[in-house]
Amino acid sequence: MAKFKTRLKAKMKGDKVNIKAIVSHPMETGRRKDKKTGEKIPTHYINEVVVTANDKVLLTADWSGTISKNPYLSFNYAGKSGDKVKLNWKDNQGNTGEAEKTVK
């Protein structure tokens, strides 16, 4: 469980809410080789991220291995203090993660 850490920030910025998220994840493209054994490292990346505010979907992201390791995501939305922001992700190996924050 604690293998992948999902961090989420939701803060007022002017009249918008700013969301920032980072997930600790290797994001392997499947093309890299293990330097010691010479074996391919299998693909392992987050392929779906869903961000909701008060159970309404704000953003759905479909990713590929092209996203950098420990993916970062940031955007603004028209919201208010007290909104419940939730982030869920899943990767191609069936792992999932989530984080929840109340907008300050």
């Binding site: 704000l58 479909d62 950098s68 993916p71 970062y72 028209a78």
Partner: peptide, 18 residues
């Protein structure tokens, strides 16, 4: 990547790529 924008979101998304 593909981002589907929901209601109320600013059409500006930051991310990091290889």
């Amino acid at each position: 990547a593909k981002f589907k924008l929901g209601e109320g979101i600013d059409p500006a998304v930051k991310c990091r790529y290889k």
